[in-house]
Design a protein around this nucleic acid. Structure first.
Lengths: 236, 236
DNA sequence: CGGCACTTTGAGAGTGGTCAAACGTCGTGG
DNA sequence: CCACGACGTTTGACCACTCTCAAAGTGCCG
């Protein structure tokens, strides 16, 4: 059991916190764990006693669809309260998997219950966090109707760029990309081959550089315009 | 200003409410309004002072993508607290449109604030409602990766069947369907022609009857198996 | 050097889009 | 009562997007 400043940093991004509230968050006991690429952080089924906060690395939500097939419905970056659901729902309908090595902090349901009972303002901020997740989901749904091929790939890269930038993980428009092309295909509902062609096209247009785990957007505003990306929905 | 039992009915579906809580919900003042097909219930932009509950009919979330193009990211049925977002977010990134004639009840932000300050249990239930919306969104994203053609159409029809059944709007496996084929195409990210072919196939397999505004699933479990529909995610 | 994982390319096939036209139903007006 | 137009549905033809299978290229690591 250690304490963490991650949650405080995450919530204070969207509203001013009182001194009391900051103290509550800072003294929240967390259990820190690390996972390697592909590891299952939380698995489908009855929820465990605790919610997880992503501190380092990336994670994804994987729905089982066949005996061995999985489809991805969401991606998470550091600072995301990945599994606040566990606190209110008694059953998870998908797995949460590590994408690349990542660090997680677990917070017990008891402590969360305590917060929602005693601190309406913090409750509001936690709730807000889940509402923003839902906004992102809706944009993903909308994007799949509106965009295809290179534009769909570009839109996701713009989103990742913006979300990672908000937590200081972007430098000179580049960021670490733990997802390979096969993974990206699963996230977008495409085949590897198709994603590869989309990347080739974006590269040819000078809108993307991607080299072994590192992505750079040479012209972020140009790409954003090209794929109609408007970061407003991320509430950063 | 009138009172309503809609919200009480909706929230009590998922947990037991205390007498006090029931009273609070029952005495909540609401403003009731009706809309005709296609009308804009809430429009993109700064949020108004109040959240809306869908009482009768259906509604959809429409994201503007071009000057005249819209894509749909969600559908709502009676009992859904369509716009709880307005309470926590200060900006809506899409329109909410009436699908067929529908009835809405508006609840002011002041009253919601009061509830979240004084009734942690009700707050938890409202929050839970938005979490279930998010679950549905994730299943929509996953479905678009996993299913195509007739199965994708069938999956949505199964979902509507289940959600409408939960609020007593299904009889002998049939329900009123205010969405036409063009609308369904927009919801699924397909063209009208393609949706029409999918419907033709489902009909030929004896899995769907659809006649001018009325849909019936002659074999709901057969269709569910065929499209891998598992209603668990709806938390009904 | 050899294996392994990821990326890249090509060819053939299926899925799904666009355009265009015909059909059916229904409400309106003559 | 019928003609008409509006609207949704259905069909066909043709083309673009995307998939699968297959194979070759590239970099990393034992």
């Amino acid at each position: 059991m250690a304490n963490s400043r991650r949650l405080e940093a995450s919530l204070s991004r969207r509203a001013d916190l009182s001194a009391t509230e900051r103290t509550v968050l800072r003294e929240l006991p967390v259990t820190r764990t690390t996972y390697s690429d592909g590891a299952c952080i939380v698995s489908e089924g009855p929820t465990q006693n605790g919610s997880c906060l992503l501190v380092e690395g990336m994670a994804m939500r994987a729905h089982r669809v066949g005996p061995s097939d999985r489809v991805i419905s969401a991606l998470h970056v550091p600072g995301d309260f990945v599994d606040l659901h566990a606190f209110l729902l008694d059953h998870l309908d998908h797995d949460i998997l590590a994408v690349g090595p990542c660090t997680i902090e677990f917070i017990s349901s008891e402590h969360l219950t305590q917060i929602t009972r005693d601190h309406p303002n913090l409750t509001r901020l936690l709730w807000l966090d889940t509402l923003i997740d839902a906004k992102i989901h809706r944009v993903w749904v909308a994007t799949r109707s509106a965009l295809r091929g290179p534009q769909r790939v570009g839109h996701l890269l713009c989103e990742l760029h913006a979300r990672l930038d908000a937590v200081g993980l972007v430098s000179s428009n580049g960021f670490a990309m733990p997802i390979d092309q096969r993974g990206l295909a699963k996230v977008l509902g495409y085949s590897v081959v198709h994603v590869n062609h989309a990347i080739r096209d974006l590269r040819a247009d000078g809108l993307l550089e991607w080299d072994r785990g590192h992505v750079r957007l040479p012209d972020p505003t140009g790409l954003a315009r090209h794929v109609r990306f408007d970061p407003a929905y991320l509430e950063l």
